[in-house]
């Protein structure tokens, strides 16, 4: 279980860029049940990506605390290296363009096991087999192992990123707008893939997105984040009963197909 308790985060302004200082998260609390998929919905500037960065330990909150299985985040991360992983929206920026798909995947595997690149021959074949099995997990053909990122389509590359994210067998996966750059048909396939992987590896998901329909299709419950404050929390099936004005207008604005 992940508990985020009354977390606050501000960024200082800068006269150089002309940006004013801003309190991005103004006391956010949310609970993500173990093995569940929790959705976090909000517009641009709502603070949802900042919350993801705090949860990933890329930044520290100004106030409040984040507990995983009852343990403080940084301590938990030390005790469980690689057990929290992330998939970002921008798949092209997430991979090294000079690496092949195999190198991209194995970097994640070896970083965990500490075998580095200096393994014996049989160890290397074993690693290649691991990379193959990861590709199978995300429904990609094995011959892509030797390809470079620019030779793949957006959907294929995002699948590689997902494969890399699950390579170290994480318990928690943060998906920050992970499907937003993809075509609708591909979005649907990737959502299905993610749902399958979650069951297979009993992972906990935090699914961050601005598209309410996508969130509803994969999540059990949804938090609505607006201007740094959680406006509402509801189970997906009770979506029609949201009351806060932000969640209501988000819901009413959706053009359903």
């Amino acid at each position: 279980m992940i508990e985020i308790r009354n977390v606050k985060k501000s960024y200082r302004g800068s006269w150089l860029s002309g940006k004013a200082g801003k309190e991005v998260l103004r006391g956010v609390s949310l609970t993500i049940p173990e093995g569940g998929c929790t959705g976090l919905v909000g517009g641009s500037g709502s603070g949802k990506s900042t919350l993801a960065r705090l949860l990933l330990g890329l930044e520290r909150p100004d106030a409040g605390e984040i507990l995983i299985e009852g343990v403080e985040l940084r301590k938990w991360r030390k005790e469980h290296p690689g057990k929290m992983s992330v998939v970002f929206q921008d798949y092209t920026a997430s991979v090294n363009p000079r690496y092949t798909v195999e190198q991209i995947l194995l970097e994640a595997v070896t970083a965990q096991t500490g075998t580095g690149g200096r393994g014996r021959k049989d160890e290397n074949t074993d690693l290649t087999e691991q990379a193959r099995s990861l590709l199978r997990d995300v429904n990609l053909p094995e011959h892509l192992l030797g390809h470079y990122p620019h030779e793949l389509s957006g959907g294929q590359l995002q699948r590689v990123c997902i494969a890399r994210a699950v390579a170290a067998n994480p318990k928690i996966l943060v998906l920050d707008e992970a499907i937003s750059s993809l075509d609708v048909t591909v979005q649907e396939q990737v959502l299905e893939l993610l749902a399958g992987l979650r069951k297979k590896y009993s992972m906990t998901y935090l699914f961050i997105a601005h598209d309410l329909q996508a969130v509803a299709s994969i999540c059990g419950d949804i938090y609505f984040l607006h201007q740094g404050v959680i406006e509402e929390h509801c189970a997906c099936r009770d979506l029609s009963r949201v009351r806060s004005s932000y969640a209501r207008s988000l819901l009413d604005s959706v053009i359903i197909f």
Partner: peptide, 24 residues
Amino acid sequence: RYLIESRRRMSGQFRRAVSEGGAH
């Protein structure tokens, strides 16, 4: 048909959640 069905599958949960509540 494939394009349409993909989208329908993805929005299915949302449609059901919204229509069952009867708010729409």
